[in-house]
Every structure is written in C-alpha cells, then in structure tokens.
Simulated scan of single mutants.
Amino acid sequence: MNKVRCDFVDWMKAVGMFLIVFGHFFGDPFNQFTQPVYPKQLGVAMFVFIMGWGLGKINDARYEVSYNRLFPMFFWGAIIALLISFISLFAIQDLAESNYAPLFLGVNVVFNFFPANPTTWFIGTYFHIILLWVLFFHRVKITPIILFSSLIFEIVFRCYFINANSIFIAYMSLPNWLTLFLLGMYMCQRKDSENSQGLILRGFTWGTFLVIWAVTLNMLEVSNRFPFKSIELSSPFINALVTSSFVSLVYIANTLFSIAVFSRISAGRIVRFFSRNTIIVFIGHMPLYFVIEPIVQIVFPSGWPKRLCIVLIMYIGLSWVSELLHKWIKMDQIKKWGWEKITQLMPQLAKSQ
C-alpha cells in the first residue's frame, strides 16, 4: 500500500468542504456555474473521488480498512444526532428521528427527502460505497470499459428517478456517485506534480470552462428544482435524461479540473488543518447554523455580510472545535479497542482479509 502523502488530496478535501459550507448559504450568481447541480455538490463529488483514490491502492485488510473509515463517520454522526434530538426535544418537542436513518445501513436513501439534519444523508451513501468496495470492487481492476459502463448505468438510473419525481433518491443513492468513485480507483496512482509548471494555464482553463458552461446553460430553460435543477427542452423523459447526463458531466469535469490544478500546489499547514477536520464540519455545520444565525443577525441583519460571517464561523470555527474534540477524544484508541472486540467475536474477519 502506497502511503506517500499527496497534496492534491488535502486541497480537494479542504476546498470541497468549503464549497459545501459556502454553497448552503450563497446562491446566485454562483449557482449558474455548475448547473444543473449546485456548487456544494462539487464538494461531495471531490470527497467521493478521494474515497475511490484511497481505496484503489488497498489490496488487503479490506475489513479493517472499511471499519477504520466507517467508524469516525458513524461515531460523530451518532453523537451529533443525539445532540440534535436532545435540543429538539426541549425546543420543539421533536426527536428528529430521521437523523438516525443513515446509521441503520443507510436506509435513508430510499426515502425521497433529506434527514432533519440535511447533510446527514451522506453517511448512508458513504456506507453503501464502502460496502460495495468490500464486497466487489476491492478485487476488480478498473478499466475504461468499466468506467464507461458505470457512466451509462449512472445516467440511466438517475434519469429514471428524476423522471419519477423521486429526485432526492436520485441524488442520495450510490449510483449518482458511482462513476466518480470508480474514477478515483482508476486514478489511484495519481501523484502530485514535482513543480507548479502549467498551474496558471490549468487554472485559467478551469475558469474558462465554468464561464462557458454558465453562458451555455443560461441560454436554456433551467428550472430551480432541488437537489438537481431541471433542464427543460422537451418531454419530461427527455428533460430527465439530459439533466442526468449534464449532472455526470459537471461532476466529472470539475473533479478532473480540480485534480489538474491542486496537484500542482503544495498543501501547507492551513490546508491540512481544514483537510483533517472535514467530518465534523460536514455533519455539524447545519445544526450550528440554527444556533448562530440569530446571534449573527444582531450584527448583520441580512445580506452578504451576514452570509459570509456565518460561513466563516462554520468553516473556520467549527474546524477548530473539531480539532479540539479530536485532541480530547482519542479516536484511534477507541477504533482499535472496537476492532479488537469485533475480531474476538468474529475471528474469521481477521483471517479472511
């Protein structure tokens, strides 16, 4: 297993997390650059690619690796879900039970709505991706043919659910992210560039693509649905098919551009700080919003100053909270203890790696 650290991974995690936080509170004019998806979804796309990139280099110990990756996501997901239930019980007499659905084998993806904490949905999808890798893709060499087949399946699957008005299922289900994951496995040997040569040209090309994409899509009729906008061209089926195809194109193109750019920029301490604190920020920033929004409103009643202040608090402030929590809670020790207990109960897991 190659353990060489790649700066582009830290960049993609840090920038991806910022896009998710930023995208929840800033809409137009930024939304036009990523239609029919929203900018925050590019952050999720980067995370899914990185999952594939990391798992693509692992040839053994798949059960332990899967456990180590799932444990922090489920641990913090459960903690935050319990905290939300505690607060909601006293505030609005509601336990916010839907936040627990992703923790039960990711069952949330079969319901056409987000959990009460709208970012919790990813825990279920994350589990399904890991499960698919453990059961099947850990022993499969990803080829261009597999990638192409995955892309076709992804577009058709997403099209079906968009056309059936089950748009949240289309978004949360594993097939929506499958090609990005397999692309990461396919590019698992990708490394940083030894120098920054070509960085400006690559960055300019990415920016040009975003502008051309915005101009092109703005000439079409695009309705403001969520979590995907809808490109209105013809019949509902044609609209769903075109929308689904464009979703995949936006995901893949921007992910590849991000790799091309970030693989030529060194990741310093600040980038790595945000990179290692993504889980708590991802799951916790929306609940934090409902706490801090009334406070921020006292200083900034509305507009961009208010939104920017909220984003900075949730991205920078919550990252510091995450850093402190990881210092106080010895996650590695807890994971190790848990794995030892599991292998004692099911020794065949350790033997069948």
Rank of each mutant, 00 (worst) to 15 (best):
N117W: 06
W121V: 01
A14I: 01
V110S: 02
L241Q: 00
L105M: 10
P294D: 12
F273T: 09
G124M: 05
A96L: 12
T143P: 00
L180W: 06
I142K: 08
F127D: 01
C6R: 13
L83Q: 05
V299K: 06
R69S: 08
S98W: 01
M219F: 10
I169E: 06
T143V: 00
I58K: 15
P36A: 13
N112D: 15
N59G: 15
T34M: 08
Q32R: 15
M185E: 08
G284S: 07
M12V: 05
V107I: 15
S245R: 02
T119W: 01
T278K: 02
M12F: 03
F274C: 08
P347N: 03
M172C: 02
L19Y: 06
G198Q: 00
S244H: 02
L324A: 12
P236S: 04
V222C: 07
W177K: 02
N2C: 03
T208E: 03
M12R: 05
G27K: 13
N68P: 14
C188F: 10
K13C: 14
L217A: 09
I20L: 13
M51V: 05
V215N: 10
G184R: 06
Y186H: 12
F153H: 04
W206I: 05
P72D: 13
F74I: 14
F25M: 13
T34E: 06
G317V: 04
L201Q: 10
I79E: 04
P36F: 05
S150P: 02
C309T: 12
I252S: 03
L349Y: 11
P36I: 04
R272N: 03
F209N: 13
A45R: 15
H128C: 07
V44I: 14
Q41T: 14
F181D: 02
N254R: 01
I152A: 07
G207E: 03
F136C: 05
L349M: 10
V134I: 08
I169T: 10
I58V: 15
H138A: 04
I79A: 15
P301I: 06
S244M: 01
G27W: 14
Y67W: 11
L308K: 12
K336A: 14
S223C: 05
A253V: 09
V299R: 06
S319F: 13
L217Y: 12
S66L: 09
R69I: 05
Q344V: 12
M73R: 07
P29F: 12
S88Y: 12
Y100K: 04
F47E: 08
M46L: 15
